[in-house]
Simulated assay, not measured.
Amino acid sequence: MKVLDLQCRQGHVFEGWFGSEDDFQSQRQRGLVQCPLCADEHIEKRLSAPRLNLGAREPMAASASPTTTHTPAISRGAIDGAGVLPPVLQAAWLALARKVVANTEDVGARFAQEARLMHHGEVEERAIRGQATPDEAVQLLEEGIAVMPLPLPVAAKETLQ
């Protein structure tokens, strides 16, 4: 089994598991390897370190505190100059997008209409998502209907194989 670090043209980094190098190349040529965030099929391998299992680790030194943890901080500097999120943030964004998809109803192009019906009490309120033009979104906001643009990656809408 080969575990590869992969990257699309947008700079999204993700991991792929393949039976062999030939398997990776074959799937890539057939368009089966896509970025889970943007569905880009132009995928390149990145340098990756092999995992070597060389045995058990040494016991932790007595002076090291087992309760000490390091939580990474997120700042404006967490996004590189090309506007690319680090892999941990990409994974968090994808998890959030999947949660939104799983807990909302896709009403498609009827979004503005459905939002108005709910706002006026004509249909039961529920969590919806869909598409609205910029003009429709502005009109909804002017009417006091809370909406928020949320670009969802294609991979959030389907189960990964």
Rank of each mutant, 00 (worst) to 15 (best):
M1N: 13
P72E: 12
L52R: 07
T71W: 01
V123C: 08
Q7L: 07
G83R: 03
Q131T: 13
H12Y: 09
Q90L: 05
D23K: 04
Q25S: 12
C38G: 11
I145D: 06
F111V: 02
A115G: 05
P59E: 11
A112W: 03
C8L: 10
P153T: 02
G31W: 02
P36K: 00
Q131C: 03
E21K: 05
V154Y: 01
N53F: 07
S63L: 01
V88C: 05
P153G: 13
S20G: 12
C35Q: 02
E21S: 08
T68A: 13
H12A: 08
P36H: 03
V101C: 04
L160V: 05
I145V: 15
G144V: 05
A146Y: 05
V88R: 12
D5M: 11
H42Q: 15
A82R: 13
A102G: 11
G130F: 11
Q27F: 03
F18L: 01
E41A: 15
V33S: 01
Q131N: 09
P151F: 00
V147P: 06
H12R: 06
H70C: 04
G83I: 02
H119F: 14
L117A: 13
R76A: 15
D40G: 14
P151I: 00
V88K: 04
V3H: 12
G16P: 07
V123Q: 10
Q10E: 14
T159L: 14
N53Q: 08
Q10Y: 09
L141Y: 02
R28D: 06
A102C: 06
L117H: 08
H70S: 09
